[in-house]
Deep mutational scan, measured.
Amino acid sequence: MAAGGDHGSPDSYRSPLASRYASPEMCFVFSDRYKFRTWRQLWLWLAEAEQTLGLPITDEQIQEMKSNLENIDFKMAAEEEKRLRHDVMAHVHTFGHCCPKAAGIIHLGATSCYVGDNTDLIILRNALDLLLPKLARVISRLADFAKERASLPTLGFTHFQPAQLTTVGKRCCLWIQDLCMDLQNLKRVRDDLRFRGVKGTTGTQASFLQLFEGDDHKVEQLDKMVTEKAGFKRAFIITGQTYTRKVDIEVLSVLASLGASVHKICTDIRLLANLKEMEEPFEKQQIGSSAMPYKRNPMRSERCCSLARHLMTLVMDPLQTASVQWFERTLDDSANRRICLAEAFLTADTILNTLQNISEGLVVYPKVIERRIRQELPFMATENIIMAMVKAGGSRQDCHEKIRVLSQQAASVVKQEGGDNDLIERIQVDAYFSPIHSQLDHLLDPSSFTGRASQQVQRFLEEEVYPLLKPYESVMKVKAELCL
């Protein structure tokens, strides 16, 4: 049975990233139509530049190519590739079939990587351009969430054990800070992308030097003109047959890092959902379990974690691919890159769409948070109580021993009897502590235990987050809708 299948058929496997999760716009960027249309555009740009620099290419040939950029006979191309065992030459023939007058000058002087690699770089750039505003929107939604809850005390956790208090907004800023680093890295790697350009079979530009009869300047002009037509500021000066596969490492490393950030955020949300302090959106008709109707599973956060793990592992592909590119190139890269580049971007696209949807509907339960604080705060307040007693004339050592005994009794009630923490009640009825009984409410005010959390939130948002989001103001209103 021949390899390949009808990918629109229910009898043929289709990647869930495309069929179930990723956005239509990201799927289109990695589609065959987008790819092969870009090949034709690159052939047109090459012909236009070659004509401008004096090669015998007519206006009629150029116009014929322009008129057929979208006229792609995919069936013919597939048949040609089956016959020739070469995808680029299959599309040269297919393009030439609908451009008979231009057929002889299509791909003039070029090698397969002229269309293959340059198209990949265009796709990487455009895919990054799709991700950047999506990530900015996630940051914006979380920034709104953090600002609104900047002063809401909550129990902090280290080692997932109760620690000092923080605020809900401050905790959210930990998430935002990681995503801001990801946004900066995505922008950097996007701006650092260079075009492969017009380089020939081993990167020496020998074929173009021959076409222009040894004119170095025209060869350099050709490279520059096509690079500018493709919208790049610069091209690699040095290439082998391909652009260095280190570029793929750079791009997928940034995406993998984004995956790590999203995994951490969504894990926190899942843990908070278990504590009943916070939940992701839950639709009115949504079913959490087929057997347990009360369940409210954090399905979206779980999906993000599941896909983020996949995204983090994909960076190993370009690392290994770059390491086995012998001399000017081997074909070890080809099949692998067809999979890992598309999957990385479709996965990143999915987790950003999902995280935006989550961040637009996060639900906080202040009463649950308050109750958990009441359970733990008495123990945390013991040092403040000791200091207040010393100020009232008591002995630190005597007070410490009193607190120690009462704390152990209260802990026994919590752990052995399943009761509430009654340390404060014990202190309130103990005559030894009568000098500070009137101060206990103040000493137990949760806001006095959150330090500068709310001020940190305000400063972080104003100095770091809002300036970073400013270039994306025009796209901030787009909502994230999930079908599944």
Rank of each mutant, 00 (worst) to 15 (best):
S140K: 15
A335W: 03
C173G: 08
L341D: 11
G197D: 04
E250S: 14
V475G: 15
R234N: 08
A480G: 15
A2G: 07
I403E: 05
R459Q: 11
F449C: 05
Y13P: 14
T382W: 06
E79Q: 11
L121T: 09
E213Y: 06
G418R: 06
T227I: 05
L44K: 05
Q409G: 10
R234E: 11
V29G: 03
N384V: 08
R296N: 10
D441T: 08
N126R: 10
R374Y: 07
T350M: 09
V429L: 15
G96I: 08
L331D: 00
P24I: 14
V457F: 03
L69S: 09
V414A: 06
D215S: 14
Y365E: 02
A335I: 03
I106W: 02
G419M: 10
C113F: 03
V324R: 01
A206E: 01
Q221I: 08
N336M: 07
A103D: 14
M181A: 08
E425Q: 13
S412V: 15
H93V: 13
Q41P: 00
N384F: 05
M292D: 07
R137H: 10
T321F: 06
I62E: 04
C304F: 00
D120A: 07
G259T: 05
V478Y: 13
S207I: 07
A308Y: 02
K391M: 09
E302S: 00
L341A: 13
C180D: 10
Q210N: 14
L209W: 10
L142A: 04
G259H: 05
T330M: 04
H400F: 05
S23Q: 10
A47N: 04
Q286D: 00
F433Q: 03
D420N: 01
V405K: 13
L55A: 02
A260K: 01
A150Q: 10
D349L: 04
A143K: 05
A260G: 10
D248I: 04
G116Y: 01
V92G: 09
L135N: 05
I424C: 14
W39G: 03
R245H: 06
K276Y: 06
H310L: 08
N297T: 02
A78I: 08
R372M: 05
R14A: 14
A22Y: 09
L319P: 01
A143D: 02
H97L: 14
K101R: 11
R309V: 11
K477A: 10
I106M: 07
E81K: 01
L352P: 04
I424T: 11
G203N: 01
F36Q: 14
L423V: 04
Q51D: 04
S9E: 14
A230P: 01
Y114S: 02
R270E: 06
R190L: 10
R374T: 05
V324I: 09
N274V: 06
H93G: 12
A102M: 04
